[in-house]
Write a protein that binds this DNA or RNA. Structure first.
Lengths: 331, 331
DNA sequence: AAAGTGTTTGTAAACGTTTACAAACTATAA
DNA sequence: TTATAGTTTGTAAACGTTTACAAACACTTT
């Protein structure tokens, strides 16, 4: 490996000078610069990031923790984070937790290890206490997610009101029997969406039917299976609100499998507005989260925190939008 | 920040001892260990990875370079890489190049900077010469991809023969007018799949019709648009082979949009066997790449190279499989 | 020619680890 | 008791950078 020293020797200057050339930190005469560049070229020198980072006590790197790289919803969030990060001279690494809280813990250690300067979490299944502690000590921002009873900076939509909006849409279309396929109850998002659904049911003077509430895990398969269960009911729902698009698509396929039609026989709505929801037949009515804006705001928040600024507005709630497509019909 | 020194002071031992406790590198009496652990606990000490990595001149980290996180095909490859990596004590970071060669270059610098010990590239759009050079100096493995005229270790399927297989399938079903929506010509994969298609056309004693070859960019949108072009032909094809599933789905939707049916009016096949190809209606006939095995083999190859072993078998070609579903029909 | 000013360079000390080597223990054997 | 061997600990030097400070140099100005 060639180091500053090697280049310095060949160029006949001190390592300080070579360092100055590469870090562009202070003036070097164009003559010496040329000598240095030349020597570096010959030796194929590349600055060692570890040395630099150790000395500077910063990595200029952030980590995005994704619950599931398979879920395309996160892609846009990630890309807008990356774009802002790169504008500000930060590298971005991604880590996939595969929906496992223990992986989340493990990955967060990169922060304590000083391998990255900050973290944006797109998932927060770890317990509140330890995440709170982490956030006191290190720059952490939650995006899409948030934590109850916690002061961890977050950027998200109001999932309760969005879910209510979807469910109300069904009632406005004249449906009375509206079911909900929820996400896993250990994540706040799922609980919020369920809460919004329940609020809407009560607002519309219907009873909450526990048979109409099925807990899935955000996967296509769970959407499919739980829809089968709903279809098997003596009095099946005429409308189904799934807590994400992938489950909604699973539900639709289950309905199709039983030779029923969407939306003619059963209406279905999803959540997230992933690309597939536009492409699928029928195109899915769903909630569109402002993914780009979430990513942007989250990264800016993180930059502020890493910059040591006192952040006053710690929770940013953005507007979502109900996208009406063809998967729901008047009852 | 608390360091070895702080812990050493509080525990009344030398920093060497503290280091030994945390690196588990040599024996420490249980009594001193207890003192150290205790002090570390009090001070909330976490070893600084940069210091460690600099000293050891290795990071125990690899980087996976993905062309497009949006493309779910890569997910399984990534996950099997991660699994093998973690079994061997390696961390994994992901970087997304958004299909931009310049991002590829930038990301590869992490290797030269010594931020990671090795790289697995799921994309190789950089020029051969510079990639060859890189691979001489650092541990690099190509997965799914490969480079012509190059000795860079790679794990992939034989895209030419797979494409031929798909196309032959159409001819066996009695089709005569088989079109191809290719990927971008700057990537080898696309060129190979096109080559396989052409070979199949000739084998089946048909003429190569340049109107039947349309160059896309692997996106849904390009599949849709190019299918529109094919439909507009005076004599449109009766079967279309798209170079990946996303374009195939785009093509199907274009066909549907013109009130034609798949497969009754036009047969369509894809490539990659992403999850959506099973879920979509009609389920897609496609080539299934052994994603898990590719990831596994690629990571093992990388481990060998990083371990300094002389790798003799540098190119691993795995078997794919033609998955016949409902999107193709006898002509 | 001397003094003053501004620019460029070099020296050396850090950043937080690990580890070769030496020193200091402890336990056993003669 | 002393010698020997084995274990545990400490000292100090590295790993590749950056940067405060000092030194050296090149100009002006007097």
């Amino acid at each position: 490996m060639t180091t500053l020293k090697d280049v310095a020797n060949l160029a006949n200057v001190s390592i300080a000078t070579v360092s100055r050339v590469f870090s562009e930190s202070s003036a070097v005469t164009s003559e010496t610069r040329k000598k240095v560049i030349n020597a570096a070229e010959i030796l194929d020198y590349h600055p060692n990031a570890l040395g630099r980072q150790l000395r500077n006590l910063e990595t200029k790197t952030i980590l995005i923790v994704v619950p599931d790289i398979t879920n395309t919803f996160f892609s846009n969030v990630i890309r807008s984070i990356e774009s802002i990060a790169s504008d500000n001279g930060f590298q971005v690494f991604l880590a996939d937790t595969k929906n496992r809280p223990e992986n989340e813990e493990r990955v967060i250690d990169h922060l304590r290890n000083k391998q990255v300067d900050g973290v944006i979490l797109l998932t927060a299944r770890t317990n509140v206490a330890s995440l709170n502690k982490l956030s006191e000590d290190y720059p952490v921002v939650l995006a899409c997610e948030y934590m109850e009873h916690s002061n961890i900076p977050s950027v998200s939509i109001d999932n309760i009101s969005s879910a209510r909006k979807v469910s109300n849409h069904f009632f406005q279309l004249g449906h009375k029997k509206v079911a909900h396929i929820s996400g896993p109850m250990e994540v706040v998002l799922s609980r919020d969406r369920l809460r919004g659904y329940k609020q809407s049911v009560l607002e519309n003077r219907q009873e909450i039917n526990s048979l109409f509430i099925q807990e899935g895990d955000f996967s296509y398969e769970s959407g499919y299976q739980l829809m089968e269960k709903l279809l098997a009911l003596e009095s099946p729902p005429s409308a189904v609100f799934a807590a994400n698009d992938e489950m909604a698509i699973g539900a639709i396929n289950a309905i199709k499998h039983y030779k029923l039609r969407v939306p003619e026989d059963i209406s279905v709505a999803g959540f997230d507005d992933i690309k597939m929801s536009r492409i699928f037949a029928p195109p899915l009515t769903t909630i569109s989260q402002p993914a780009l804006e979430i990513g942007e705001k989250a990264m800016k928040l993180l930059l502020d925190i890493m910059g040591g600024e006192e952040v006053t507005k710690r929770h940013i709630v953005l507007n979502d939008q109900l996208i009406i497509r063809d998967s729901c019909k008047r009852f």
